[in-house]
């Protein structure tokens, strides 16, 4: 059967299942969604828990899932800031009572964790369900989402260690969210006709008697973004400043090594840096360790495909089955050669 007639047939079947659309303003355009289709995509959960599927999961079940699927990025206790900002930390028992995070009011929070910000428990359920784990979104069952969330709430001391979170008690737990009273919609930036919170006037002459320098770029930050000469046009009224060793004048930089593209495409850069540790070891550290090991190439290819076992620390590397054999081999060869960037 031709592709076209297959499509036509599939379309007819769905149209028959959904029934003819009587409502359309545009005859022949679009069709009614089937109940199964709506169910498959309508996964959102609102603050009033509309959309929350029934189910349950305990803190204990959550620990196991967490270790397997969440620790790599978020740390064993949700405290890690190595990959993302911390999920847990900065909230107190008093915050749980008042629903306001004291660290904001005292202005002594070194950084803001998710539990310090999120006012609504539905937000966490919805987000874990739709987008986590990072490399396999939408792979958790509802019960697993409840369990992971129960463990996260336990890490924030919002629920006890023997707690089981379910659709029946989630509204009760909402009443213990540390920042539940910390949000406001009283501002002029939601409505297009909202009232602005600042009012400047367009003074034209002698508007100031004194100019005070408030802040300028520190010298050490001048080249933190690379050589600015290479980030500007080579003709015109201005040139970019020479802020570091570089070709200058917009001369073409040497071509990047093709493995860099492959590394990004294959998702390696999520966990590995070339020169710096992110979650896994840096590529250059790997090259250093296996410098004199003749069997390293085949051994590492195997480890990329099947997953590694914490050779560099607690974090195990998940299997990378989506990367082709040829790509894996090319990447390992490049890594062991010291990951040249050009």
């Amino acid at each position: 059967m031709s592709r076209f007639s297959e499509l036509l047939l599939a379309g007819c079947l769905i149209a028959a299942a959904a029934g003819a659309s009587a409502n359309s303003n545009f005859p022949g355009v679009g069709r009614a969604a089937t109940p199964s289709e709506v169910k498959a995509w309508d996964i959102d959960v609102r603050p009033d828990f509309k959309g929350l599927p029934p189910g349950k999961g305990s803190v204990e079940q959550g620990i196991e899932l967490w270790e397997a699927k969440c620790t790599a990025c978020h740390g064993s206790f949700g405290e890690s800031n190595e990959v993302f900002t911390p999920l847990v930390g900065g909230t107190t028992k008093e915050d749980i009572e008042t629903g306001r995070v004291g660290a904001y009011i005292r202005q002594d929070a070194p950084q803001r964790s998710t539990l310090m910000k999120v006012p609504t428990l539905s937000t966490l359920w919805d987000y874990i369900n739709r987008a986590m784990p990072w490399n396999a979104p939408k792979s958790l069952s509802p019960d697993e989402v409840y369990a992971v969330l129960a463990y996260l709430l336990h890490l924030g001391e919002i629920v006890p260690a023997d707690f089981t979170l379910s659709d029946r008690n989630i509204a009760e737990v909402q009443k213990r969210m540390p920042n539940r009273n910390g949000m406001t919609t009283k501002h002029g930036m939601w409505d297009i006709k909202g009232k602005p919170d600042v009012k400047n006037v367009a003074c034209m002459k002698n508007c100031k008697t004194q100019i005070t320098m408030g802040s300028s770029l520190p010298d050490y930050a001048r080249d933190a973004h690379g050589n600015l000469a290479d980030q500007n046009r080579v003709i015109g009224a201005v040139r970019g400043q020479q802020t570091s060793e570089g070709a200058g004048g917009g001369a073409a930089a040497p071509a990047p090594h093709p493995a860099l593209e492959l590394m990004k495409k294959s998702g390696c850069s999520g966990c590995h840096g070339i020169a710096g540790k992110i979650l896994g070891p840096s590529f250059r550290d790997i090259a250093k360790r296996y410098k004199d090991d003749k069997g390293a190439e085949s051994q590492l290819i195997g480890r990329v495909k099947a997953g590694g076992g914490g050779t560099w620390g607690d974090v195990a590397m998940p299997p990378q089955a989506h990367v082709s054999d040829a790509d894996t081999a090319a990447l390992i060869k490049w890594i062991l050669s010291g990951s040249p960037e050009n």
Binding site: I105, S122, D126, N179, T184, T185, W190
Partner: peptide, 23 residues
């Protein structure tokens, strides 16, 4: 809906410790 990007991110921290939501 108070989604992740309306309740964890894209909220504006004010001096009094509240966050403005749906800015």
């Amino acid at each position: 809906w108070a989604t992740k990007d309306e309740a964890v991110h894209y909220v504006d921290l004010m001096p009094d410790g509240t966050h403005r939501q749906y800015t």
